[in-house]
Amino acid sequence: MKSGLKRSNAPIFWSLFGAGGMLSALFGPVLVFITGIAVPLGLLLPAGTMSYPKMLAFAQNFIGKGFIFAVIALFLWFAAHRIYHSLHEIGIHPGLLAKLLCYGSAFAATLISAYVLLGLGF
């Protein structure tokens, strides 16, 4: 066995990436359809599906809050990891700054969405 091996911290980012990837694969397309197409164009769904009172109630519900938080935070961790590694693959070898920008923005957005969601009350 080789000596002087350093344990990689990748599992933290890789797990968040994996969870976000799974979630975006499952919910991403349908969320784009509902929020970007069906609701604005008034297709299929009843009027006022995403009205303010309804969305507020959704965000105040314990499960709804969790869902919104997971969708925002994990999607961003997924994107951050993908962008970071894609930079490496196209020959831009990302240093500490790129790491901070990619994962830092996901981390900041996680904190902000948690703060806002908790601020909406239950």
Partner: peptide, 13 residues
Amino acid sequence: ELVASEEGVFNCS
């Protein structure tokens, strides 16, 4: 120890 190291599996994308 090798699998989880910086030379290990997480280099794979």
